[in-house]
Simulated scan of single mutants.
Amino acid sequence: MYSIRWHGIALCGLILGTSSSAHAAPPGASDLANEVSSDAAQCAAFFEISATCAANTDAMATAADLLEHRKVMEKIAFLMGKASGMSVEGVQARFATVSDAELESISRSCVNFSVLLHRYGRACRDFEAHPEQRMTDLRSHGLGTAWPNGLPD
């Protein structure tokens, strides 16, 4: 079930991972990794809040599934944060900041959850299912460049 997501995480790591002697990171790679990490942190917060709201309605199976989605996005946020040069504490602080902002946008009430669903729902589901597409989209807007000789070893 999650093999496609983990494949996407592995692809992100290959594309933006640490430099090797054979393949230096392309120009803008740390900016791209930082943006992907930021997006993933926003989605992780979205899935966590979604799980909390689902649990409040006794939809525990849904809440558990949403927490699994959060874990995937959190993994991407940390992986890409590391690739961009962020510390673990920096990624944790980013997550706390975006989580707090998302909670404020719904007045800390699940009654207003539709605001988050409208803002993040589809984008976060798409990002989780196809993280490589998010990187392609960011590159098309001038952030980062493709590896000139294919993926690093």
Rank of each mutant, 00 (worst) to 15 (best):
K71N: 08
R94G: 04
A55P: 00
W147Q: 10
S20E: 15
K71G: 08
I9T: 02
G28P: 06
G85Q: 13
F47R: 01
T57Q: 10
R134I: 07
M135K: 13
R108Y: 14
Q42R: 01
S50C: 10
S38P: 00
H23N: 11
S3Q: 14
P152T: 05
M86Y: 07
A33F: 13
G8T: 01
F47I: 09
P26T: 08
R70H: 07
I49V: 07
I4H: 08
L79C: 10
A77I: 03
R108G: 11
G144F: 07
E89S: 07
C53N: 01
V36E: 04
C110P: 01
D100P: 15
M73L: 09
H69I: 09
G121M: 03
D126H: 04
A10S: 14
S107W: 12
D153V: 15
A44S: 08
S140G: 08
S20K: 09
T62L: 14
R5K: 06
Q133T: 14
D65F: 15
H23D: 05
S84E: 07
H69D: 11
T97P: 06
C124E: 12
E102P: 15
N112H: 12
V72A: 07
D31A: 14
D100S: 13
A59I: 05
V88G: 09
A45Q: 03
F127G: 00
K82P: 00
P131R: 00
A146H: 02
I76V: 11
K75G: 11
Q42M: 05
E132H: 13
N56F: 07
T52F: 15
V91H: 03
H130D: 15
F47K: 01
R70L: 12
S99L: 02
L79P: 04
A83T: 14
I106G: 10
L16P: 01
V98M: 03
C124M: 12
G150R: 04
D39K: 06
L11H: 06
R70I: 06
M1T: 13
H23F: 02
F78Y: 07
A29V: 11
C110M: 07
E74I: 03
G13C: 08
S109I: 14
K82L: 04
A55Q: 11
P152E: 07
A64S: 06
